[in-house]
Design a binder for these strands. Structure first.
Lengths: 148, 148
DNA sequence: TGAAATTTTCCCACTTTTCCCCACTTCCTC
DNA sequence: GAGGAAGTGGGGAAAAGTGGGAAAATTTCA
């Protein structure tokens, strides 16, 4: 499982160096074969390919006649791109996705269990600020009785 | 179980010397393998790894489509970092987390049962001041019938 | 259809950071 | 006061991050 935030800078060619601490695990799990796609929060999602497959299947099984399902399919499946880690452990983030998430140079890779999120540095900081500001706005019902 | 407040100073490299009284217990319980993450109160949480795992599993099982759940996942799982005690019983607090909690030099490590909290010294003092100021503002319903 | 130019991919090298280990100083105990 | 343990600081080696350049492939234009 992936966790933790790593600041990274994209190089002039839009390449992202996967942090060394994740490389070995990714090579073993998926041979460096990743899937990058768009997230509704305007960041990118990065899945090891085996973790992505069942998600794509589930999305494709949704009703084509429900407008929200259709939108999700377009956003997630439509933007999904296969990428491969090169010999130096870097992946090339497709230009359309880079533009979608506003990734220029300073980005952060955020481990989120079975996947990663990829954020523009400033947007990530704002995201965290908001999470703190709304900490008193209630907790999800799913967490009743749960403590840190 | 961990108790008590210990003032510590981070060294110039951001390392934190774990108080000797906890070291033996931590080595026995988790081999010195700890997980540090961000807390909504702008301090850090330090868990022995076995104590952290079920929390992360619970968080990862929350709905990806609930904004509050998503925020919590990003804050807690996204910021979680594995750290190891070195030969001298020190851990390196990751720079992004140090910045998050405003840890420069003088910090306090606070035992809180199965985990620790790590505060900037001044913020901790303020925290205690606030706790005193609001002591008469009522008690949580959970504490009905409970006495110190 | 061929040649040239642009884009993409792969590889190499340099710089920076990180991690690990050793040594010194200070405080507590006997 | 002396010995030991804990806290503190620094330095060096190794690995990771970053950038540039060359070669190959594809596309476009003549």
């Amino acid at each position: 499982m992936f966790r933790g935030v790593t600041p990274i800078s994209l190089d002039s060619k839009g390449r992202l160096a996967v942090p060394a601490k994740y490389r070995e695990g990714l090579l073993a799990f998926c041979g460096g074969h990743l899937v990058v796609t768009a997230d509704p929060s305007r960041c990118l999602l990065v899945y090891p390919q085996p973790a992505w497959d069942p998600i794509e299947q589930k999305l494709n099984s949704l009703s084509s006649f429900n407008p929200q399902s259709r939108s999700l399919q377009r956003l997630l499946v439509g933007n999904a791109s296969d990428v491969e880690m090169d010999g130096a452990g870097r992946i090339l983030v497709p230009p359309p996705l880079r533009q979608f998430a506003g990734l220029i140079k300073d980005v952060v890779l955020v481990g989120q269990g079975a996947k990663f999120e990829l954020w523009d540095q400033e947007k990530w900081d704002l995201q965290i600020e908001n999470a703190l500001a709304f900490k008193d706005s209630g907790i999800p019902p799913e967490l009743d009785g749960f403590s840190l």
